[in-house]
């Protein structure tokens, strides 16, 4: 149902263009024949319902239509750009997890002390900062002032570090808070006291007993955050000239290449729906209570 809605909304996008989308896309300097041709190519001369039907039918065959400017099939564009975005998103997630969870554990163990306060304040505030703020700041510090990393582009292997850090930091801030809260909740449980009373070492109590139970809400948060991560790639990729699907989207908007815009929006939205679905499944695997209840 949601997927259907997403498809419908993306399909309708092109009809939101004020005036005639064909005019807007082609500009003034083309002949009437060109216009008619494009209108027919896009199927805009047919009834709306039929257009939607054709749109769905083509999508089912993996046909996104073609770019108005380069005439390349959009599926090819997406095939070349999407892996770059996935790579970026995956590395960001890794950075987010590897900073966020240890820091969250640390804050929970020092709960109420000044270390906890510092970590909490920094992470709460950091999570409110948009990518287009963090990105330029990182760029200024690490690329311009320190000169450690390339400013932008995709030429060198290190190019991915800054964009991934930008996205990963925002994610880690949220994860830190979440880990802290959910760990604190379980730390007072009876079975933790039992584990300690049995004489288990502190790392074993925290990592094997407490963290396992605390991980559940974290999975949900990671799933939800993947959404803003995916949307954040649009801006981050633009800042760092990373040739992913987000940048493709922005480029297509600048060129008024609406079929490409439509396809990018659809691909990102569907990825998000898919991630949410995976999160739900993962949640069921991780939590026996959810598994048996359903």
């Amino acid at each position: 149902m949601v997927v259907f809605g997403v498809l419908l909304l993306t399909f309708l996008l092109i009809h939101l263009v004020p005036g005639d989308p064909v005019e807007v896309m082609l500009g003034e300097s083309v002949t009437q024949a060109d216009r008619t041709q494009l209108r027919a190519d896009l199927g805009l001369d047919q009834p709306l319902i039929q257009q939607f039907g054709t749109y769905l039918g083509k999508l089912a065959q993996g046909d996104f239509g073609q770019s108005i400017h380069t005439k390349t099939p959009i599926i090819e564009l997406i095939k070349t750009r999407y892996p770059a975005t996935l790579k970026l998103a995956f590395l960001s997630l890794l950075i987010g997890l590897s900073i966020g969870i240890p820091l969250g554990i640390y804050a929970a163990l020092k709960a109420g002390k000044w270390q906890d306060l510092v970590v909490t304040i920094v992470s709460v505030r950091l999570s409110a900062m948009p990518a287009f703020w963090l990105g330029p700041m990182f760029m200024l510090i690490f690329a311009v002032w320190l000169g450690w990393l390339p400013v932008s582009g995709m030429e060198s292997k290190d190019s991915i570090v800054l964009p991934a850090m930008t996205l990963g930091f925002a994610l880690s801030a949220i994860l830190t808070r979440m880990t802290r809260t959910s760990l604190l909740e379980v730390l007072n449980d009876d079975y933790i006291r039992t584990a300690r009373a049995k004489g288990l070492t502190e790392p074993s109590v925290i990592l094997r007993h407490a963290l396992r139970a605390a991980l559940l809400p974290i999975i949900t948060i990671v799933g939800l955050q993947m959404g803003s991560l995916l949307a954040g790639t649009v801006i981050t990729e633009t800042i760092f000239s990373w040739d992913g699907i987000g940048r493709l989207l922005v480029e297509s908007i600048e060129k008024r290449d609406y079929p490409v815009t439509q396809a990018c929006v659809l691909v990102v939205a569907l990825s998000y729906v898919l991630v949410n679905l995976l999160t739900d499944i993962l949640y069921k695997i991780a939590d026996p209570r959810v598994r048996f209840a359903s």
Binding site: V3, G227, S228, L230, G232, V234, A269
Partner: peptide, 9 residues
């Protein structure tokens, strides 16, 4: 179902 700012974009 549209993540974050994508729909506004």
């Amino acid at each position: 179902a549209f993540p974050g700012i994508l729909l506004a974009i």
